[in-house]
Write a protein that binds this DNA or RNA. Structure first.
Length: 472
RNA sequence: GGCGCGGUAGCCAAGUGGUAAGGCAGAGGUCUGCAAAACCUUUAUUCAGCGGUUCGACUCCGCUCCGCGCCUCCA
C-alpha cells in the first residue's frame, strides 16, 4: 500500500505522491513565541515530526519549513509588559522552544523563518493583492483582504460567511472593514504597538497574522507545495485565509494536501493557554518525567484523534519503555553469542516486521498498527532469545532492524551508552554474588537493598547478575 | 443556529459486511534461594441505545442519548 494521507481539503484519505518525484515540500505552522509552548502545542510538533520521519522512511527527501511568529498582538503586548524590546523578548522563547524540541527528540526542520525577517516579502505580497483588486486600504490605513472577491472562500472549513457568528473582536475593526469577515493583511500602527513598526506604502504598521505563512511558504516552497499541517484550530480562520491570499496572488492551487491534528485534552477539555489548563514540558520535567516519555505519549495516539493527557498515561509509557529497554539490552548481550550469519527465519521475521511497520505508517500514520508491528516483533524475538536458538548474528540483524524503525520512533535508544555502574556499586554487586554463592542469602538481600538505596537494581540472569540504574 | 470529530474490555487504543490487533493494569504458570526481567496461558459471546437493510453488522442506513472541537487568540 502506497502512502495515504487524510486530506482536510477533500475530507478523504487519498494516495499521496509529491509534485516532484522523491521530494516533498512541507509547511508546518510553528509557535508564536510569547511564552513557553505547552504540551498541547507539542502534540502538533510531535505529529509533524512523525510525518517528516515517515516521509523519510518511505524514501522521500523532505524540505520542512516551520515559521516562528515573532510579531503579533501577544508578543507586542507581553514584551511591552516585560519592558523588553520585542526581539529580545521573543528570543528567549525561541531558545526555549528549540530546547524543548530537542528534549522531545523532534527533528529539526530545514528552515525556521521568523516573521520579522520577512517583512519585505510580505509587503510585496500585500501589494500584489492590492494590485489585483482583492485587497483594500481601510479608513484606519490598515490593509484588508476582501473575501467577497474570493468565491472559493470557505473551501477548507465549509463555512459560509453569512453563517458565522460575529465575535467580540469584530466590532473593533468593523468601521474600517467592508465586511466583518474580511481580515487584516497589514495592521496600521497605533500607540499600543510602541516602537514595533515597519514602513510600508500604506504607512507604518506591521503584518497581519496570516500573511506571514503565505509569504514565507512561497519564498521557501514555491506557489504550490505538497503538504501543510497544523492543529485543527488553525483551519479557521488561519489556513482558510492563507488559501485565500495565496491563491488570489498566484492564481494556482496553494497546497495539495492539508493535514490537521486533533487537540490534546486534559480532564476532557482542550488544553490551551487561554483556558489556563496547560502543562509545559518544564512542568513535567520538574515532576520527574522526561521528554522521551512524553514523546511516547504524544505519538501513541493517532493524530486525528483527540488525546486525553493523563499522568497515568505517562506512567504507562514509562513501563512500556522499560520493557523495550530490557529487550534491547538482551539483544545487545546476545551479540556476543556465536554465529556468523543470521538465520533465514530471523531475517524473514525482521523483514515482516519492517513491512508491517511501514504499512501502518503509510495508512495515514496509523500509529497503532505501527506499534503493534513492533510489539509483535518484540514478543517473538524475546521468545527466540529465551529458547537460546538465537545467534550473535541474529541479534545484530535484529538491532539493525530496530535502528531502522527508530529513525521514525526516535524512542528506542538502540545505541544508548550503557549506564556503567561505578566501581563501588560494582563492588557491592560482586559482594552480593559472593554471598549468594556462599548461600548467605540474608547478606545477599542486605546488599541488594543497599544497591536499591543507591539507585541501582540487580537482576540475576543465567549469564550472571545484571546491574540496572533505576529510572535511568 | 452552521460545520465537524468521537462513544470498542479496569484504563489507552486499532479494526473489518462473515464473526474483536496492540499497549498498560489484573490473574494463573515456567524460571529463581527469594526477587526482578523474560516467556507461556488468561481477561469484550461483544463493539453507547433503538430501529432498518442483509444469509450475516461492531462494521452500511435512519433515529436517539452522551462527550468534545471550530464558527475571527488558539497546535
Amino acid at each position: 500500500m502506497p502512502l495515504h494521507f487524510h486530506n482536510s481539503l477533500t475530507r478523504r484519505t487519498e494516495p499521496f505522491a509529491p509534485m516532484q518525484p522523491g521530494q516533498v515540500g512541507l509547511y508546518t505552522c510553528g509557535p508564536t513565541v510569547y511564552n513557553f509552548a505547552h504540551i498541547g502545542n507539542f502534540r502538533a510538533y510531535a505529529f509533524e515530526d512523525l510525518l517528516r520521519r515517515t516521509l523519510a522512511f518511505c524514501g522521500l527527501k523532505v524540505t520542512q519549513v516551520m515559521n516562528l511568529t515573532d510579531v503579533d498582538d501577544k508578543t507586542i503586548r507581553d514584551s511591552r509588559q516585560a519592558g523588553l524590546p520585542l526581539a529580545v523578548f521573543t528570543q528567549r522563547f525561541k531558545d526555549a522552544f528549540f530546547l524543548d524540541l530537542d528534549a522531545l527528540r523532534i527533528e529539526r526542520a530545514e528552515v525556521y523563518p521568523a516573521a520579522t525577517d520577512h517583512i519585505p516579502e510580505m509587503i510585496v505580497l500585500i501589494q500584489t493583492l492590492l494590485d489585483k483588486g482583492v485587497a483594500y486600504v481601510g479608513d484606519d490605513r490598515s490593509v484588508y483582504f476582501s473575501i467577497a472577491k474570493c468565491p472559493r472562500y470557505g473551501q477548507l472549513v465549509h463555512l459560509q460567511p453569512e453563517q458565522m457568528r460575529g465575535g467580540g473582536r469584530v466590532k473593533n475593526d468593523e468601521y474600517a472593514k467592508e465586511s466583518v469577515a474580511d481580515f487584516a493583511l497589514w495592521k496600521a500602527w497605533d500607540a499600543a504597538d510602541g516602537d514595533v513598526k515597519w514602513d510600508s506604502p500604506w504607512g507604518p504598521g506591521r503584518p497581519g497574522w496570516h500573511i506571514e505563512c503565505s509569504a514565507m511558504s512561497m519564498e521557501y516552497l514555491g506557489p504550490t507545495f505538497d503538504l501543510h499541517t497544523g492543529g485543527v484550530d488553525n483551519m479557521f480562520p488561519h489556513h482558510e485565509d492563507e488559501i485565500a491570499q495565496s491563491e488570489a496572488a498566484n492564481g494556482v492551487q496553494f497546497v495539495r494536501c492539508w493535514l490537521h491534528c486533533a487537540h490534546l485534552m486534559v480532564n476532557g477539555e482542550k488544553m490551551s493557554k487561554s483556558a489556563g489548563n496547560f502543562f509545559t514540558l518544564r512542568d513535567l520535567l520538574a515532576k520527574g518525567w522526561n521528554g522521551r516519555e512524553l514523546r511516547w505519549v504524544l505519538l501513541g495516539c493517532h493524530y486525528r484523534q483527540s488525546l486525553n493527557f493523563t499522568f497515568q498515561g505517562l506512567a504507562d509509557a514509562r513501563t512500556t519503555l522499560a520493557r523495550l529497554d530490557d529487550f534491547i539490552g538482551r539483544l545487545r548481550e546476545a551479540q556476543a553469542r556465536p554465529g556468523a550469519a543470521a538465520a533465514p527465519e530471523t531475517t524473514a521475521r525482521l523483514e515482516q516486521a519492517v513491512a508491517e511497520f511501514q504499512a501502518g505508517l503509510e495508512d495515514d500514520l496509523n500509529i497503532s498498527a505501527t506499534l503493534a508491528a513492533l510489539f509483535n516483533l518484540v514478543r517473538d524475538l524475546n521468545k527466540a532469545l529465551d529458547g537460546n536458538v538465537f545467534s550473535g548474528a541474529d541479534a545484530r540483524a535484529a538491532l539493525a532492524t530496530l535502528r531502522r524503525l527508530d529513525t521514525v520512533l526516535a524512542t528506542l535508544d538502540v545505541d544508548r551508552a550503557d549506564d556503567e555502574a561505578p566501581a563501588d556499586i560494582r563492588q557491592l554487586a560482586d559482594d552480593r554474588l559472593a554471598a549468594r554463592k556462599a548461600k548467605d542469602f540474608a547478606r545477599a538481600d542486605t546488599l541488594r537493598q543497599q544497591l536499591t538505596t543507591r539507585g541501582w537494581t540487580v537482576e540475576d540472569t543465567p549469564a550472571g547478575p545484571r546491574l540496572k540504574k533505576i529510572g535511568g
